[in-house]
Write a protein that binds this DNA or RNA. Structure first.
Lengths: 218, 218
DNA sequence: TAGATTGTTAATCGATTAACAATC
DNA sequence: TAGATTGTTAATCGATTAACAATC
């Protein structure tokens, strides 16, 4: 067990850009493009070629001087970095509306995210069928996570109970939480948290609309 | 019509933090806290007091030396900045699964976002009832936006048709697009775009889980 | 080989943090 | 007034961009 958390420390800004790179490279591959230079790709993606090369070079020399990057190879390397070549088992916690929609759309693009179970603590929901999954009681969560090698818990419960449920998750051996609850979670280092706060996103849009209007007011 | 888009230019980093400030201040207000210092608030939010004060001072002197900030006042000022004291009319474009869930959950926290209509170009969906809204044909969108002073279009259509639909939206007088389609949109300056790419978010989580494991491998 | 384009170092820019004078 | 805490300037840090030597 190495204790060196600093090695290979990649900034969040760079990690955030990786999925977008993957998306464009996948499209290029689909279109049959074999090779591409940083200049071409950066122009398509509207970023600087410098940033593109800097970003990629954090992970290794994926290109070749005088040639550029092989699209398929680069795409695959980024896919690997993002764990897209492995399977990831998930559970959804919260069988409400949002949980349902995620249950039905989880395996997007044949990426390896596999929904293994749905949990809820509402007696009225437990036992019901959501897209082929029988909703289970929260009591069973801990055992289920262990037995099914669950990696990620998707939190789609109201913010009131989110912190308590998240704390309970700490002892189950989960590796990450995809948090749709509208609250911040305070997890130990060994559990990664990715927040999706939809209302925050809508507010940012609202801010920018406002701002544009102010700056262009008659 | 001023042409000076530079005035009051606030960085995206700061704008991104505003909804979180609003969230914490709303909680404090609910808890009956009257005043708070930047040091206290920053400690609760796990940011630096310096950043907090710098951020707020981009918008005005909301505090008072020797006293701190009045929670209700500060909360209200940030709410105003984010347009939370005004009504915003929306339409959802795409009556599929995701459109449905958003339709049912749009008016979160009594914020002023009001869903006015749902549109789709699938004949099988047009005319159906989603949470009290009869799905309309895309032909009617342009007139509807004008007549109902629609500000924001929520795009929940497959990526294949997203760019075409977005281009059509340019001429309707819409101010912003909340884009759930998994593709980048290229809009003119007068239309703000906020992307929600859920699969990107999940990939970032997957990356960080991977990274943590690598750095702590046996 | 000559031309192209990367990988990488150096320069710039912007965002965060620290410090402190202003002031309630 | 004295103490507290802001608003704001200055210092630091990190991220982006530019430049170019290495190399395919």
């Amino acid at each position: 067990m190495s204790n060196n958390e600093q090695e290979n420390r990649i900034s969040q800004a760079i990690v955030s850009r990786l999925p977008r790179y993957l998306r464009y490279l996948t499209e290029l591959e689909t279109d049959g493009v074999e090779r591409i230079s940083s200049r071409e790709l950066s122009s398509i993606m509207r970023v600087t070629a410098s940033q593109l090369r800097q970003d990629l070079n954090n992970f290794g020399g994926f290109g070749q001087q005088g040639y550029g990057y092989n699209v398929s190879y680069l795409r695959d390397e980024i896919a690997k970095l993002l764990g897209m070549n492995d399977e990831h088992f998930l559970v959804i916690i919260g069988g409400g509306r949002f949980g349902k929609i995620l249950a039905k759309n989880m395996n997007f693009n044949n990426s390896g995210f596999v929904l293994k179970g749905i949990f809820d603590n509402d007696e009225a929901v437990i036992g019901t069928d959501i897209d082929g999954h029988i909703v289970m009681s929260m009591d069973k969560l801990s055992d289920f996570v262990r037995e099914n090698r669950i990696e990620i818990a998707v939190l789609t419960i109201p913010k009131e109970s989110a912190k308590a449920v998240a704390n309970g998750l700490c002892r189950t051996g989960i590796s990450g939480i995809w948090n749709f609850s509208h609250t911040d979670l305070d997890m130990p280092d060994n559990i990664q948290v990715e927040n999706v706060h939809l209302s925050d996103s809508l507010m940012r849009l609202s801010y920018r609309i406002n701002e544009y209007r102010k700056n262009h007011a008659g």
